[in-house]
Design a binder for these strands. Structure first.
Lengths: 358, 358
DNA sequence: TGCTTCCATGCACACGTTTACAACGCGCCG
DNA sequence: CGGCGCGTTGTAAACGTGTGCATGGAAGCA
């Protein structure tokens, strides 16, 4: 049986109240008694019961983190950023992975984090209005990544600027026929990132005097395989693009794979630019828009810290910049782009793929 | 203010004891009253206070997961596996990321999980004897991945078999001069995986009648960059290997990068095999030893469930099999392997790299 | 009918802290 | 010399739930 505060009090010959104050470093306890208490606690190898403490004080010392997919690179990076800051302030991290649709639903009906956390961090989750409201009703500070909830703290990248930079990069290289592999189309819930990026894509094209062609926008659902299919679809057009902007590196990887399997090469045949600067983007020599991933996690955690300590300041919004990283998969447009009317080689076995330097 | 059990009791016109029993589905409560209680709770949108519940019952409904690096692919996958099982049983997941050495140390001096979790899952952590003992002293069931602690549950892959398979694959292709890029050498703590794999490598070579050459074993510290350096070192040997076994895919990626930068190709110049079947292994067409990653997480979580429910069975050990995945980076040995005495091209800018199909 | 058995329910305490409030001693100042 | 303020400590009441035990009543049985 672990020692309780009463045992410590007896051994130090003080009341439990004094023990509590001494251990938490409250000012109103004399140096001598504090010393005695600390020694007694040490000798009994005592540690406070977090549950009793929470119950009495109302504070839990815990922050809930809700993430759509822990096992994806992006979220695991953000999570690491969050963790590093929380840990430094002795806050615990209660993880909620909502990958499954059933789990997502269950989360919002049962609200298992209610009364369990001092604050909430929500990563990039498509939320319905009712769901946002349910979160707010927990009456704890909330920091949101990606989307936004009224009255909550907020961190995001400048998607408008990032996507514009990507498309401008391609235009500057001389490309006029530019495709986009987009994320999920028209999600009814409040997840605006794909919309903003798509808007930027269209706007920049328009500014460059390039006519809008809906055939050049193909959804890729953020996965490698879907990105590969999307690229195949683009290449099958009567007039295929000479450059493609994939709004995630994963989809860009898929696009590169399709190129390789068709015997094509980036950037010689098609230029490809991604978004994220995933760790393997460098390996594949992919030009991309980099965003500070772990850093965003740290910012979210810091906002929570502010909210928990300061208290009454109103929630702030932080926008972090993106950065163009030019690597080997984008290059100058050819004078006469070749026509590719071949179809991807089918077959279960892995095929070749390759990328070459600019 | 959130409703408490007393409010529910009043509204349902029963005692709090009955409310408690009804809500937890205990058998000894009549259907009629249970119905009344559930409705009252629903109307007040009541949810139990986890802290009060923990304090009273001694159970926390929480499992601590200690992981060295959340942001690495492997651990995030395992974490997802753990989460899926725990979630299905309404257990919360308290995450501890120990990446930093300071954090690691602090964790073991302060034991912040003590009295806070019902069980512990420890991922692949190099632990000193004192640290293992500290964990055991928490007196909760512990499931360990990779390493092993006496008296604890245990999941791991068959490293002996996996590594042997990798080396045999290379030998079967006709290779006689086979290098190995190893993980950290001689960690004084109880982390045996690299040792087992190295032993398998040496044993299989010996069984094939191939003389042991210490120059062919180079440490790569599990990172892409170090893996790249290791490959460079292997290629600079007077008699370089014709095939290389990297004991992690990350290091294999680095190895491929080095080959690419030197204008060499796998498997035409050097065959490369990795370990893990990382998600980008397929992209790079890397032959590798696959291990079921998320599945191991699920197994760990299930062990914990057994320990928490069953109770008195003694901890079991599960060994999951690995699987050879042949892709494009391994191929038959050449009759007369070329000599490469060039050094890697230096330079800050990214360089080409490529892989081709078998 | 009277006794036992069993189920449903209530009573009251325990769980281990935090914290408002009171009490106490001491020095200071009027 | 008395009162006042301040710093230190103790007292006791929450905090919200789980659970052993007692109670009451209905059903079963002789």
């Amino acid at each position: 049986m672990a020692a309780s505060i009463i045992d410590v009090a007896k051994r130090a010959e003080v009341s439990t109240a004094t023990v509590s104050r001494a251990l938490r470093g409250l000012p109103n306890v004399s140096a001598a008694t504090r010393e005695r208490v600390l020694r007694a606690a040490e000798e009994l190898s005592y540690s406070v019961s977090p549950h009793a403490s929470s119950l009495a004080s109302g504070r839990t010392g815990t922050v809930g983190v809700v993430v759509p997919f822990v096992n994806r690179w992006f979220y695991s990076q953000v999570l690491a950023g969050i963790d590093s800051v929380l840990r430094a302030h002795d806050l615990d991290l209660l993880l909620y992975n909502l990958g499954d649709e059933r789990v997502h639903e269950r989360f919002f009906t049962r609200m298992p984090l209610r009364r369990r956390v001092d604050a909430l961090i929500v990563l990039n989750l498509p939320l319905s209005a009712a769901e946002s409201e349910a979160l707010v009703s927990m009456e704890v500070p909330i920091a949101v990544l990606g989307s936004s909830i009224p009255g909550c703290w907020h961190v995001s990248i400048d998607n408008q600027e990032g996507a514009s930079t990507a498309v401008r990069h391609l235009i500057n290289l001389g490309h006029r026929r530019i495709g986009m592999i987009t994320a999920a189309p028209g999600d009814p819930r409040g997840f605006t990132t794909p919309i903003v990026r798509q808007h930027a894509y269209r706007t920049v094209l328009a500014q460059a005097g390039i006519a809008y062609d809906p055939d050049l926008e193909v959804p890729g659902h953020l996965s490698i395989d879907e990105g590969a299919s999307a690229m195949a679809q683009l290449l099958s057009l009567a007039e295929p693009p000479t450059a493609v902007f994939a709004e995630s590196d994963h989809m860009a990887f898929g696009a590169l794979r399709t190129l390789g399997r068709m015997g094509l090469t980036a950037p010689d045949d098609v230029s490809v630019i991604g978004f994220d600067d995933h760790e393997t983007a460098e390996l594949l020599d992919l030009t991309t828009i980099a965003q500070p991933v772990a850093h965003q996690g740290e910012l979210l955690a810091r906002q929570i810290l502010d909210a928990l300590s300061g208290g009454d300041e109103e929630p702030a919004q932080v926008v972090v910049p993106t950065r163009l990283v030019v690597r080997g998969t984008t290059g100058a447009a050819r004078e006469h782009p070749p026509r590719y009317h071949s179809t991807p080689r089918p077959g279960p076995e892995p095929d070749q793929h390759s990328t070459t330097a600019r």
